[in-house]
Nucleic acid binder design. Sequence first.
DNA 1: GGCGATAAGTTAAAAATTTCACAAAGTGAA
DNA 2: TTCACTTTGTGAAATTTTTAACTTATCGCC
Lengths: 219, 219
Amino acid sequence: MARKKHKFPKTTIERLSYYFRALEELTRRGIDTVSSEALGTRLNIKPSQIRKDLSYFGDFGKRGMGYDVKYLLKELRYILGLDRNWNVIVVGAGNLGAAITQYPGFMKRGFNVVSLFDNSKNKIGAEIGGLKVRGMDELQGFVKENNVEIAIIAVPGHAAQTVADRLSRAGIKAILNFAPSHIVVPDGVRYLSVDLTTKLEALAYYMSFSKDKLWKVFS
Amino acid sequence: MARKKHKFPKTTIERLSYYFRALEELTRRGIDTVSSEALGTRLNIKPSQIRKDLSYFGDFGKRGMGYDVKYLLKELRYILGLDRNWNVIVVGAGNLGAAITQYPGFMKRGFNVVSLFDNSKNKIGAEIGGLKVRGMDELQGFVKENNVEIAIIAVPGHAAQTVADRLSRAGIKAILNFAPSHIVVPDGVRYLSVDLTTKLEALAYYMSFSKDKLWKVFS
DNA sequence: GGCGATAAGTTAAAAATTTCACAAAGTGAA
DNA sequence: TTCACTTTGTGAAATTTTTAACTTATCGCC
């Protein structure tokens, strides 16, 4: 299993994810070999970028031939940590938390939402997507007992930092934050945020001012 | 109202959005002046980065004094296109579409979801967040009559491209795509995507392999 | 009104990322 | 086996983005 050199751009991992998805689509269509050129056309990414990204992790292709789709998928699955299952909890049982809990794309990738937490009396005990909503007092115990490593924050912005603190204390190793606010986590806890309004604001900006035609997905 | 020089990094707009949010928080707390240093500490962004970002659009600060919070807010509001209202439609009335429709952060910023569309018989006519779900056949007419410029796609991946095509034909000017697939839009239509699983996959990667401690929000 | 302190705006250097261009490697046909 | 063709992997160049260093402006105080 490939491991290779140096540092690589942060965006590489994100692109690997896109490659992975495109390759899945190709297997579904029964295609078993693809060139960086062909893949690049599909994804609107330069072939040289694709080759460079992959080269950070190994030599997956065959010169003159391209990449074996199944093999590359296997390697990417390993690199992206998708060859195992992850237990995930969601904090915040509002509309967004409920949607995330039931989002089909997560389970398909091995991210299993195993419980939902909230601190509101009238949500605790309710059932969402087959899961009972638990109170925050059960958080620490649940995380320990169920070996939960990843948490998703889906609470209002003002509560996000408090939740992040509790999650960190409970032993959570990675946090995905949907709340529209900047939060700080201790060393050792991985953190990424998904910001819904920021993207809309960027669109609004480009509609108002920019002459740029099309806009490359920048995340 | 400021307009200024050259090109600037794509990420600048995203950061302006963060600055805007932080400044809002500062006004709420009654603080009316802030330095790039202080703002940078809050957001974990280098002061020089903040000054550079702002300098692309104008001279908003006073040397020796910092930035007037209210004034900078006003300018950023203008730059980000938040000084007006936008009519937004959501396509896809599943869990995610419903959550997006009711997401409080959008309306607060002037993004008003004015209708929800779906093509499933048993969703059409239902009411979500006070809005009736409309069939796709009403799309074109609705967009024209209501001056809708922005659409949010919240359908399964395989349907996203078809939806994007219909939206473009209907005259939509910007698309925010939550579906986990790469889509192509005609020139003149702005496009950004928010990818939920990609972020989780990035976290999974960093948990498996990376020694990096903390991870700067990269969107 | 000059002086010290602060902090913006800017220029230049550094770092990060993408793209180019090409040598090396593999294929298939003659 | 050799040749023509394809396509990878990669070192170097080009580009973009960030960071540091510097210059200039503003305030408050004596």
